[in-house]
Design a protein around this nucleic acid. Structure first.
Length: 642
DNA sequence: AGCGTTAGCGCG
DNA sequence: AAAGCGCGCTAACGCT
């Protein structure tokens, strides 16, 4: 492993944000053809114009910044590539985009650090919404640095391809863009260092080229499996749809309006209530002045059928709606993809600057399948694109729980983690006391298994400030707080801090703000949209440290170590607490080893080195490698059996 | 026809 | 008045 480590770029062996104080940089902006917003992964796109500035301390400049512009495609930009290779880092607004193009220009992108001004805006924003639409334009405006050349900008917005514009206009636009972007970078750099955000910013920037690499390869569907499962679901759906039509007379069960009318007026079901006896209602409409009763799966599960017809209806309507959703949100698209494309590969954008907790989000490209919420049942529809290869998944077990235990220095939690105590068993022993005691707390018995499974939904709810429910559930939430006093005290402290200062500073330097929240009559702090602040304050530090720092860092090192080891295997996705890869079978053991190293020891080391955090709670990587993503015999039996 | 909003539901 | 958190996508719906 040591050999591989020593092949890593220096900014990973010795991560140090002070490299950004250097004025040996290259600020770059491309004007490209405009298919899919200039997506560098689309081979039909090309660069039209490159404009860049080398910084004052660049070997090619004589003590002051130099502006350069070149017409031409990605094969004619050797000078730009050379300038970046001689820089300590390059800079751009939305550097993930430039990484994609620079790769096409021949730059070995993962070895080059960037300063992305869009990520800079996002880090400065913390969790504030305006940070999530951090266009260059907005960033300039908020600093009163003026806008961009609006004339050419308008043409671009209206779909005119830069390759069709008069060269003089485009060049002027490109130069202004780069000059202003460069000014923004310098100004933002002062702000980020002054606010103490440089460490987390640096960490964010390690992730950017890795995200570009991951999203550019996509995920590969297994045509045979997709076809078979699609048919199975379509057949089942048709049967249910016909039966439902007969019962309802042909209403659309996916329409909350039609369903509410049918359930609560026509069939005269009582409107279901929550544990407090309060009716479950959505916003009022013309037909329902008190609120439209819920028609979702939870509400339907609470209804009691009396007649045979009613019973059958309740039995199948939720199943039907679920099947319909599975078809429209997954299987139809998967089938289109395997039928319409040669290789059956799905692509998505991995968005680094969208979420309030600084975890990733993703947006599906052509087939609109986002990479963070694939239905678990359909993961085994993904295979490796090379024949004989495997799909591996490495995930951080119980990550958010362990992070909460760390943040609260929670003794009971640490004991349970180090001794392998089952958290759901504790939940079951309270919420399902009788059943649990009857089976002696043995989760292998049918009763024990049932109680434990039903408990899972409640176990970690208190981690995020949840406290209400049935008397049994409330008893568990109380018991959790009593048991995990470290976590409870940390939560109380965060909440009181936010009530005092409307902000919370993480150990990494990142600041979260609730400054638009207002006190209500009961002295509760409420966000502008009406939701309370307390729970989000409990959630934010945990979700951020776990999925906004720890997993990104582990994925970064996993990616680079795989490269350093000259592995043919490659990463294809990352989902909050996991990384997914296509694996050459000869590299299976190595993938396993590198995953564990990246998700455990390297994290402790990085958090200490970068943030002086002593992460004294063990992390545990779990690695699975199969022919398909999350594949197993039970799944095959259920979904592929003839 | 196109837009934004709502309900519902998938993921961690 | 009370409410576990964070996302993106579809269909329905109401509006222009």
């Amino acid at each position: 492993m040591k050999d591989y480590w020593e092949k890593l770029p220096d900014f990973l062996q010795n991560p140090d944000p002070s490299i950004y104080r250097s004025n040996n940089y290259t600020y770059v902006d491309f004007e490209t053809t405009n298919i899919d917003k200039g997506d560098p992964n689309n081979p039909s796109n090309s660069i039209v114009l490159a404009v860049w500035i080398i910084g004052a301390d660049h070997p090619g400049s004589q003590g002051k910044p130099v502006l350069k512009a070149r017409w031409g495609n990605e094969f004619e930009l050797e000078e730009l590539v050379r300038d970046i290779e001689q820089s300590d880092y390059f800079s751009a607004h939305n550097a993930k985009f430039e990484y994609g193009w620079l790769k096409r220009c021949g730059l070995d992108t993962p070895n080059h650090l960037a300063w992305c001004t869009q990520v800079g805006e996002y880090v400065l924003a913390g969790n504030r919404k305006w940070g999530q639409m951090c266009s260059l334009e907005k960033a300039l405006q908020s600093r009163k640095m003026g806008g961009k050349d609006s004339h050419v900008g308008k043409l671009m917005k209206n779909g005119v391809c830069p390759s069709e514009m008069p060269k003089s206009w485009l060049k002027k636009y490109g130069k202004i863009d780069v000059l202003k972007g460069h000014d923004l970078m310098l100004r933002q750099r002062r702000e980020i260092f002054k606010e103490g955000l440089h460490k987390t910013f640096f960490t964010h920037m390690l992730f950017t080229p890795v995200l570009n690499a991951i999203e550019s390869v996509g995920m590969c569907l297994d045509k045979d499996r997709v076809t078979a499962v699609h048919k199975k679901f379509a057949d089942e759906l048709r049967g249910y749809a016909r039966e439902l039509d007969e019962i309802t007379g042909g209403i659309n069960t996916g329409s909350p309006k039609q369903m509410a009318h049918f359930l609560y007026r026509e069939m005269k079901f009582a409107i279901p209530k929550d544990h407090r006896g309060k009716e479950l209602l959505n916003k009022p409409s013309e037909d329902w002045p008190d609120g439209v009763p819920h028609t979702n799966a939870d509400a339907i599960a609470k209804l009691k059928g009396r007649t045979k017809k009613q019973k059958r209806f309740l039995e199948i309507v939720a199943k039907h709606n679920k099947l319909k959703a599975a078809m429209s949100k997954s299987l139809d698209k998967f089938l289109d993809c395997v039928n319409e494309t040669e290789d059956g590969i799905l692509y998505a954008n991995l968005n680094q600057t969208r979420t309030v907790t600084h975890r990733l989000s993703s947006t599906g490209k052509h087939y609109k399948a986002q990479f963070q919420n694939f239905d678990r049942r359909f993961k085994p529809l993904f295979k490796a694109r090379n024949s004989g290869w495997l799909v591996g998944e490495a995930d951080e077990g119980q990550l958010e729980y362990r992070v909460a235990v760390y943040l609260g220095q929670d003794k009971a939690g640490l004991y349970d983690i180090t001794h392998g105590v089952d958290a759901h068993g504790f939940t079951a022993s309270i919420i399902f006391k009788e059943e649990w005691e009857a089976c002696g707390g043995d989760r292998k018995t049918p009763e024990g298994k049932r109680a434990r499974t039903a408990s899972k939904a409640h176990t970690f709810k208190p981690l995020y400030g949840g406290h209400s429910g049935t008397p049994r559930q409330v008893a568990y939430y109380d018991a959790f707080r009593e048991k995990h006093q470290g976590i409870s005290n940390a939560q109380k402290q965060w909440i009181s801090e936010v009530y005092r200062n409307k902000r919370l500073t993480m150990e990494t330097g990142l600041v979260f703000y609730w400054d638009d929240a207002r006190l209500n009559r009961n002295g509760k702090l409420i966000r502008p949209d009406g939701r309370p602040v307390d729970q989000s304050v409990c959630n934010t530090p945990v979700q951020y440290l776990a999925t906004g720092e720890i997993v990104p860092v582990s994925v970064v090192y996993l990616f680079h170590l795989m490269r350093a080891a000259n592995m043919e295997s490659f990463l294809v996705n990352t989902v909050h607490d996991s990384a997914i890869a296509e694996i050459n079978p000869t590299e299976k053991e190595l993938f396993n080893k590198i995953s564990v190293l990246s998700m455990e020891d390297i994290i402790y080391w990085y958090l200490k080195t970068m943030y002086d955090i002593d992460f004294n709670v063990p992390l545990e990587a779990e690695v699975e490698v199969e022919t398909h993503w999350a594949d197993n015999p039970d799944w095959q039996k259920e979904y592929l059996a003839a």
